[in-house]
Design a protein around this nucleic acid. Structure first.
Lengths: 165, 165
DNA sequence: GTCAACAATGCAATATTATAACATTTAAAT
DNA sequence: ATTTAAATGTTATAATATTGCATTGTTGAC
């Protein structure tokens, strides 16, 4: 029984709306302020549903005409959202993506499609355990995990298979 | 029985020399040319024994006075070395580090100390398996793995423990 | 050996990503 | 209302990486 992911068709507007609603709730709980610009940045991130660079966010905001922020404004909003776990930064892409489940702070592990850039956050216990075990063996105290697996998503595999004939 | 790693004292000159000799051999095998600049870049990377940014490499080369390369020269050398598996790029640091074992091409997994920046390449089967399993579950075909664990190395943990009194 | 072809490097300019420093505005608390 | 702290605006710049083209060096065919 598969859980729906970014690979599946879904009502994306609803998906963005849900993310925003979750974010508002989380900010209320934590006494953090989800200001206009922060909300707008989070919206762009979710709207793309793909890793989005800071300058891409900036451009999209400008295109919507609602604000014309300078880079520091966007980066500050992203910092805020990251601290709350609402977005993750993907180091290998210099990009940001919304987090499905910000309820408990965590580092995301990602499957990134080289072709369509669709990126899925996974959080499997065996992976955590394997990292923990490896760290322990080296006497290393883990503070943050960055796991970014690049490859080909199911949809693109199918597309490629279809192309060969 | 612990394998010696970057955490342990070792004869670093020998360590660099070994890396160079391995590189020469690998290039001979593959019919690739380890030119002067490529060898110099590889030497700097190994000499630091820590992740080193492209511009840091550039500066060090200039300091030695043997050449004053522009950025593209360094990046091209790094590209070459990466393709042969002689160095790995660490995305979360925008930096490069020598590979212990370039004999078979692979992606490194790293334990990166936040304090002293000592970085150890690990390559444990369970970690690979966990990633493979997770990818399979999502129908995702893995092409490259980027695993960068940030934390505190044994030496720095000891140092910190000593500081508390 | 000479020449053609290709690989590697030099070099200048510029793109992309990210931050520093300081001014201004907004919101909150007293 | 006034003070304070937080957030944002603004300008400049740092840090990382690439493009495009000229030049040099190496290799192999003849």
């Amino acid at each position: 029984m598969a859980t729906p992911t970014a690979y599946h068709r879904h009502d994306h507007r609803q998906c963005v709306a849900d993310a925003l609603s979750t974010a508002r709730q989380l900010c209320r709980q934590r006494g953090a302020k989800l200001t206009r610009i922060r909300e707008q940045v989070l919206t762009e991130v979710w709207d793309s549903h793909q890793p989005l660079g800071a300058y891409a966010i900036l451009e999209r905001l400008a295109e919507r005409g609602e604000c014309h922020p300078a880079p520091p404004t966007v980066y500050r909003a992203l910092d805020f959202l990251q601290e709350l776990g609402l977005v993750h930064r993907i180091a290998s892409l210099n990009a940001f993506i919304g987090c499905d489940d910000p309820s408990h702070p965590h580092q995301g592990h990602f499957l990134i499609c080289r072709h369509c850039h669709t990126t899925v956050e996974v959080n499997t216990a065996p992976l955590h355990q394997a990292i923990a075990q490896c760290a322990t063996q080296h006497g290393f105290a883990v503070e943050a995990e960055c796991v970014e697996v690049v490859g080909c998503c199911p949809n693109c595999q199918q597309r490629e298979a279809g192309d060969e004939h």
